[in-house]
Design a protein around this nucleic acid. Structure first.
Lengths: 158, 158
DNA sequence: CCAGAACGATTACAACTCTGAACGATTATC
DNA sequence: GATAATCGTTCAGAGTTGTAATCGTTCTGG
């Protein structure tokens, strides 16, 4: 989706600050995972498959809020690199159950380190208490706004 | 840029929460301004022209961090609706100085109301003190991360 | 048991946006 | 006065995303 270049007022409201800092955080994270030859959607998909393995692509697509046709390319990229595998469900051979591989789990560990470094770099101007305060406030907003915990709303539709 | 669908860990770090809530805020704001037949980039451009009129398109493009060729279409859309006008600089007739019109200022007022409503809706679960705390923390991060105050980093390049 | 509808995954196609180079017009430099 | 540089614009190419058609599989009703 689009970004908002400039604020409407001075000082900028919380919503504008949130969008700006959030976009910055996303961009920096994208830079970091690019060093692992991954895009943020691939990272998110890998994490979701690891968190709840065996789901069908349609289920995953609905959770992420993206059209199933788009998931195909993402899964292809991860499967070609051996990080994920599609297993046909013997009971219903239409479904492709998604599972993470050992290599995928190893990459996920690297991603975890990258994520922690990213988090530290972003919040380096805040002390531990302030970080916790920020997390609490953001979590409250997320819950109030109906964001499913842990799912990034960067994919519209649904 | 991309969004990150799912977090790497539980509980999600501040960076992930920021990206998620920020994307949500941007998406909701886009919905609101769509009712005015505007896109967020158009809104940002209109606000910037109002805040510092008379600038050339190249200057504006550099401030927003987007290629000048992209600005053309944005300015066209606003100029076609009479919200903005290009004035040739008599001293240097290569430059198109951008100015906001009366109609543009009226639309900007509507945008301001939309923005305040958006802000209130987003932060409705926070009281006044908490909103101020959130704004202070986000401002600190933005300053530390080198975000020019008031400019949304949603346009890479530069 | 069989024909047709329903469903999951994939592919194909079209619409859209963005980027980068090329182009006329104008101005600065030597 | 000729050449280079600048500004705005245009154009073509690449990349991305959503919709619709396709293929194999499974469910449903007679």
């Amino acid at each position: 989706m689009y970004g908002l270049p400039v604020p409407l007022e001075n000082p900028p409201g919380s919503a504008f600050l949130l969008a700006a800092v959030g976009a910055h955080a996303a961009a920096r994270f994208a830079e970091r995972v690019a060093a692992l030859d991954l895009t943020p959607p691939q990272v998110g998909l890998l994490g979701l498959i690891a968190a709840s393995p065996g789901q069908s692509q349609q289920q995953v697509a609905q959770v992420l809020g993206m059209p199933p046709s788009r998931l195909v390319g993402l899964v292809d990229a991860l499967a070609d690199r051996g990080l994920v595998e599609r297993r046909r469900n013997p009971d219903d051979r239409r479904l492709h159950a998604l599972h993470i591989t050992e290599a995928g789990r190893a990459v996920l560990d690297e991603i975890g380190a990258v994520g922690r470094a990213h988090d530290d770099a972003l919040c380096r101007s805040l002390d531990a208490d302030e970080r916790e305060t920020l997390r609490a406030l953001l979590s409250r907003i997320a819950a109030d706004q109906g964001l499913r915990p842990g799912v990034h709303p960067g994919y519209r539709s649904v």
